[in-house]
């Protein structure tokens, strides 16, 4: 008899494999999406490069470019993980397959973990491709960068975004039409308060309070300090522990909220095909 671990591994692989095949099947969309994101990242990089001409002052252009590109690329990476979970729930609602997924003898944690496993791998590859292309346009000075520190921050940040994505995936589960738009609103708020392109100190005080709750704030601070200043993992601890705490809260909270939403849908009959 196949052990529980083997069964769960097979199910995680099944969800990851399905996501991979869907990416292949919608390759044109993927190319368009990557090109659009790349154009955005490059535009932001050039914005940094143009500051000196615009302001007429001797700004540290290299530092500014790396600062902006770190924000842009990291946000792209985290947003994909965040988006992928709620997107697949919307998709399953539209296709009507959510009923068959929920009928399968697979726990919700295994289901979500399978989707997230693919999202992390996909987002890493996508970001690496974009970084390689961006590096051709800008002479990025990474001499001081502590890549190990950046990797640790990124790895820990994944959990927070998986948790956040699971919480937000409740929206399309309950309403595929309105849920996707609501996911966009949550993403927009995170973009605004997390200091993707600026230091959060420029935000109004009340917005700074909100930014303290966003895992992206700590992820960005940690990545920038690792890549721009070469901070070690020990020095980065003051951003790593909040990410661990937020992740430790958000992952179980996400599963709990999703579980409650699933029960609500099963009570109200909202799992029926809707599209």
């Amino acid at each position: 008899m196949m052990s529980l671990v083997m069964r769960r591994t097979a199910a995680i692989y099944a969800f990851a494999e399905r996501q991979f095949i869907l990416t292949k099947r919608y390759m044109v969309w993927e190319i368009v999406y990557v090109l659009y994101s790349l154009a955005n990242v490059l535009a932001i990089g050039f914005m940094g490069a143009g500051v000196q001409n615009l302001m007429g002052s001797k700004a540290n252009t290299q530092h500014l470019i790396l600062y902006l590109l770190t924000g842009s690329l990291l946000w792209g990476y985290l947003a994909v993980i965040f988006w992928e979970i709620s997107n697949i729930i919307s998709w399953e609602r539209w296709e009507g397959t959510i009923e068959y997924t929920f009928m399968a003898p697979v726990s919700r944690a295994t289901h979500i973990f399978g989707v997230c496993t693919y999202a992390v791998i996909y987002s890493l590859i996508r970001t690496a491709i974009m970084l390689a292309i961006v590096a051709l346009f800008f002479h990025l000075d990474m001499a001081k960068a502590n890549l190990w520190g950046a990797f640790v921050v990124l790895s820990v940040a994944n959990f927070s975004f998986i948790g956040l994505g699971t919480v937000v995936a409740v929206l399309p589960l309950i309403s595929p039409e309105k849920g996707s738009q609501m996911t966009g609103i949550v993403e927009g708020v995170l973009l605004l308060v997390s200091g993707i392109y600026y230091d959060i100190s420029v935000l109004p005080h009340w917005m700074q309070s909100i930014s303290m709750l966003s895992p992206a704030t700590y992820a960005l601070q940690g990545m920038r300090r690792a890549l721009l200043n070469g901070d070690s993992v020990t020095q980065l601890w003051n951003v790593i522990w909040p990410l661990i705490v937020i992740g430790a809260i958000l992952v179980p909270l996400g599963l709990f909220v999703f579980g409650k939403a699933e029960v609500y849908c099963k009570k109200t009959g909202k799992l029926k095909r809707n599209g």
Binding site: A10, A11, A14, R18, I21, L22, R25, T97, A104, R273
Partner: peptide
Amino acid sequence: ADAAFFRRLSAMENLIHTARLYS
């Protein structure tokens, strides 16, 4: 009555996905 599948996936891909979920 309403056969729900991932429409861009082949019949075999959809069926193998189900098989994996049931180990």
